[in-house]
């Protein structure tokens, strides 16, 4: 899987502080094209912060993050162009409340790529179909269930034709009966070969879909490997401790 040529995201010596609080201490990882990486770890360990550093929604304190050859902290690159290629899905969906579903999906393609409205609309419908919500095009976010909102949010990201998708606990805010429909959409994406970085507490899903599992704690990557290795046969004390509690 790993080979120098198809590294999509390169992270080395990444540090992130909030004031005096060191949240990420020294993160080193390469993520390859088409790879599905699931990040596990206790709450407060820096998983979200790490994800948010990858598209510079959070400014990095030190180290480097290279996405598709772009040093995202460099003054020379246009971060907005880089972000167009990185979809992000949030725990609380963050659908645009002032826009209906169709407008949510059309906004970014029209505004950033100067795509014409008809094209954007056709594409939006196609993406809605992909997540099984073509009948909700005219609905406003407040009229959707949590599971539907998250599927729309994924479709919204897909409308930008991203190379990479970042997911920050996409199912944590959902009622249990809605988790499945969102995971199914993600499973389909993984099967399509999308490069995905997923922060999740869905251990079963991680075992099934992940090419690699990363366990984080206290601002470090403690252990990484296949789901088999990390989840079923962890080596580090902190990893063993974590899975003893959650499994």
């Amino acid at each position: 899987m790993k080979n120098e040529n198809n590294v999509k995201i390169h992270v080395s010596h990444l540090k992130k502080n909030y004031g005096k609080l060191e949240v990420l201490k020294d993160i080193n990882v390469d993520i390859c094209e088409g790879e599905v990486v699931v990040i596990l770890g206790p709450s407060g360990s820096g998983k979200s912060t790490f994800l948010r550093c990858l598209n510079r929604i959070e400014a990095i304190t030190a180290g480097e993050v290279v996405v598709d050859g772009n040093h995202i902290d460099s003054k020379k690159i246009d971060i907005n162009k880089v972000r167009e290629k990185i979809g992000m899905v949030f725990q609380h969906f963050n659908l645009f409340n002032n826009l209906n579903v169709m407008q949510n999906l059309m906004l970014a393609p029209v505004e950033t790529k100067q795509m014409n409205k008809e094209q954007a609309k056709a594409q939006a419908l196609q993406m809605l179909k992909k997540v099984g919500l073509e009948d909700k095009a005219d609905a406003y976010p407040s009229q959707l269930s949590g599971g539907q909102k998250q599927r729309v949010a994924i479709a919204r990201s897909l409308c930008m034709n991203p190379d990479i998708m970042l997911f920050d606990e996409p199912t944590s805010a959902l009622d249990p009966e809605m988790v499945g429909e969102v995971l199914q959409v993600m499973r389909d994406l993984a099967a399509d070969g999308m490069t995905m970085v997923i922060v999740s507490h869905e251990i079963g899903f991680a075992r099934e879909v992940a090419d690699r599992v990363i366990f984080m704690d206290g601002g470090y990557i403690i252990e990484e490997g296949t789901p088999q290795e990390v989840i079923l046969n962890p080596k580090e004390a902190r990893t063993i401790d974590f899975f003893n509690k959650v499994l």
Binding site: N80, N94, N97, L99, A153
Partner: peptide, 21 residues
């Protein structure tokens, strides 16, 4: 704040996110 973050993560500029969302 998530509204602005979602807009920025899609590649919209700060001012466009401000104006549209």
């Amino acid at each position: 704040i998530g509204q602005m973050e979602a807009a920025r993560s899609l590649g919209l500029t700060y001012w466009k996110s401000m104006r549209k969302i």
